[in-house]
Write a protein that binds this DNA or RNA. Structure first.
Lengths: 233, 233
DNA sequence: CCCGCGTTTCTTGTCGACAAATAAAATGCA
DNA sequence: TGCATTTTATTTGTCGACAAGAAACGCGGG
């Protein structure tokens, strides 16, 4: 596992921590780093060819975000996905979907709508080409774009956090279906956009809630089914 | 301003950053450090008699929490209070009050209720003795206790963040009234507790919403009045 | 007197090294 | 052989030092 694919011969001054943070975050959210994997600071230092200080800063940021958990005086590791409390996750996601879509319908400006539609175009492309990894990332970007249009940084912050976690959950979900992506995902997003564009707050709330609960139910059924098959008769 | 009141002759190994984080956070939230004040790392290092490394970690955590803002390659400073977007703040606070109180009414256990009532006792004492600083801190602890009883870490996280910010806003608010604390605050909290204890979800939602909007309106009127008086005729 | 430019200083970002804390290995004893 | 204890080893937390950027200062020209 000595994959030293370093492509950063030299970097600017204040950028060290951000590089490590972004890349580690992406690897965690794409499950390239399995939950529970130990993270060695000095090893990362060699990989990025930099000192432990900026890496430590990146890890602190990730820990604050809940993506890595760190025991005192002991090695930090990739945070695990809490399948037992998945209900809490979807409760929060549903509420954020609803409130951000509602507020976006109220407060969006033309530029916001253009941005959302641009992301949606990429989303449709990813679904059509059955690129699950890209679809999941763009899905998060789509809802973040809506949250930005809602113009409430507190809701945007929680939405970003939830959508980050969601990338890992969705990755597991579609992996179990051989990364088959149904087209109704695109349709539901289109409906959300339409409600926002029409400034139809009622529809925005209803569609957002349905969108969240549909995903919740799908994941839930997957988990129960996985539990069933694990009991071999 | 060379107040070197250091009371930590020796400390345990992994505790350095946490000490600085907790104390700085408290000083920021109590407005002991004014918004916009520059924060010098080496100065803090002398004050706590430790190296810049743990202080840097504390600052990164505070930055992630939004309590300090850091320009690249430039001094970090205490985050400003965004009075223009105060509406956003109270929107988020109202929603979190409502959802956490609702969920607390659903999911609380006897131990939770005991904890909430214990905090409320301290709260009543602080209000009676007209200790604004203590009241504000305990008010945050009160709603955090409710959020813990709601048992959804995502909502608890956002609530903590909002209540932190709220400490600064409330500090400004009661400062402008010579720290006079009305007793109806205590009554409203008692009503919230009663609704939770009765598991009356409807009442919990209604009371929490009213509680939030009452505070929002008070602060709003203060701001408009301050705006008025600033225009001298 | 004001403005542009080089210099200085001050603060941050980064580095390598050392010490404490914990886990793993090795040793001794029953 | 099995268990307790000591020793080693690995990894983190902390430190002091150095260099890069940016602001402050000073100087010369218009």
């Amino acid at each position: 596992m000595t994959d030293d694919s370093i492509a950063i011969p030299e970097r600017k001054r204040g950028a060290g921590a951000k590089i490590v943070y972004d890349l580690l975050r992406d690897e965690i959210l794409n499950l390239k780093l399995a939950p529970g994997s130990p993270i060695d600071e000095v090893q990362l230092g060699e990989r990025f060819s930099m000192s432990r200080t900026p890496i430590r800063e990146a890890l602190v940021r990730l820990a604050e975000e809940g993506l890595v958990s760190t025991l005192p005086n002991r090695s930090t590791m990739v945070a695990q996905i809490d399948f037992l409390n998945l209900r809490n996750y979807f409760d929060a996601l549903s509420l954020m979907y609803r409130v951000t879509t509602r507020l976006a319908a109220q407060h969006h400006r033309p530029a916001d709508l253009r941005g959302i539609r641009a992301v949606q175009a990429d989303y449709a492309t990813a679904v059509q080409s059955q690129d699950a990894l890209a679809m999941i990332a763009i899905n998060a970007a789509f809802h973040i774009a809506i949250a930005e249009a809602a113009r409430n940084p507190y809701f945007t912050g929680l939405s970003k956090r939830l959508l980050g976690e969601g990338r890992r959950i969705l990755r597991l979900y579609y992996e179990s279906y051989d990364d088959q992506l149904p087209m109704h995902l695109v349709v539901e997003h289109e409906e959300l956009i339409q409600a926002i564009a029409d400034r139809d707050i009622e529809a925005a709330d209803r569609l957002a809630k349905a969108h969240a609960e549909q995903i919740a139910q799908q994941v839930q059924t997957l988990l129960t089914r996985a539990g069933d098959t694990s009991i071999v008769l």
